[in-house]
């Protein structure tokens, strides 16, 4: 049934087209769908795979911290509080205990919201292109009102960043746990942790928490200075969102290839 609201409402300029844009407005949402879907497929496969996530001293970011008794020896940095859980005959992989947190952080992220509302939900697909939905309530009702919980995922995300940074530091060891070595894997984990810190530090919630919520910048010069720095980073938040996403996937892939014996982790020293 044809829509009779929005740009087709009575009183507005009588036109049949959803949009009169002549540029390739559909390209950006299409690319977003393809890239995000590729990541989701890869991440789902890896989360359920439950193996090839640890090769001393490297651990995949999808499996860190490894909290289950199912974790392989040496992979658990902060203990194994969870026992073996079997659902529908399948043993839950250690990744499934933790992935909800980074997933929640990205899902509620102000930038990713823009990206998936436009590309997946087509609300709107692009600016000045009529969306296909008859009704729209935005983020005022469940489940989308839960987007307001972004800050909780941000705080938990900081804990993950700390743990993944420790993982990167621990990667300055060799396979026999001797310190003072560096491999390609060390650089991969370091790059991953750095990108995740940049993604978190440029986050809108971080900007708000660190100083944006103040009414008087002049009364809080240190927080104001911090706010200006985060504001500069915030400008590049979409870039960090994408690059850190690729970084996580690449770090996981690298560890997987090393753990599976497909490639050797080259040591510089």
């Amino acid at each position: 049934m044809a829509l009779t609201t929005g740009v087709f409402s009575s009183g507005r300029a009588e036109l049949q087209e959803r949009t009169l844009r002549t540029d390739r407005w559909w390209l950006q949402p299409l690319i977003t769908v393809l890239v995000l879907l590729s990541f989701v497929v890869y991440a789902t496969f890896r989360a359920f795979e439950g193996k090839n996530y640890f090769a001393e001293p490297l651990i995949s970011p999808f499996y860190s911290p490894c909290l289950s008794t199912e974790c392989v020896d040496g992979a658990s940095l902060i203990g194994q509080p969870f026992g073996k859980i079997v659902l529908f005959g399948l043993t839950l992989s250690p990744a499934l205990f933790i992935l909800v947190f980074p997933l929640g952080f990205r899902l509620t992220c102000y930038y990713y919201r823009k990206a998936y509302y436009r590309s997946f939900w087509q609300s709107p697909p692009a600016c000045a292109v009529a969306e296909p939905h008859k009704k729209y309530t935005g983020e005022t009702r469940a489940p989308l009102i839960l987007q307001n919980g972004h800050r909780w995922f941000f705080y938990i995300g900081l804990l993950f960043n700390i743990l993944l940074t420790i993982d990167a530091v621990l990667a300055f060891r060799d396979a026999e746990k001797h310190w003072g070595h560096m491999s390609v894997g060390t650089l991969v984990l370091l790059a991953n942790a750095t990108l995740l810190w940049l993604y978190s530090a440029s986050c809108h919630t971080c900007r708000h928490t660190i100083g944006g919520r103040l009414k008087n910048f002049s009364k809080h010069p240190v927080r104001y200075k911090a706010w200006t720095v985060v504001s500069k980073l915030n400008h590049y938040h979409p870039n960090f969102a994408w690059v850190s996403l690729f970084g996580v996937a690449f770090a996981d892939l690298y560890v997987r290839l090393v753990a599976a014996g497909t490639i050797t982790n080259f040591y510089f020293f």
Binding site: Y110, R118, E139, T140, I145
Partner: peptide, 11 residues
Amino acid sequence: HGLGMCNITKC
């Protein structure tokens, strides 16, 4: 004022 209706798609 309906701030919650905005889904920050930045148009």
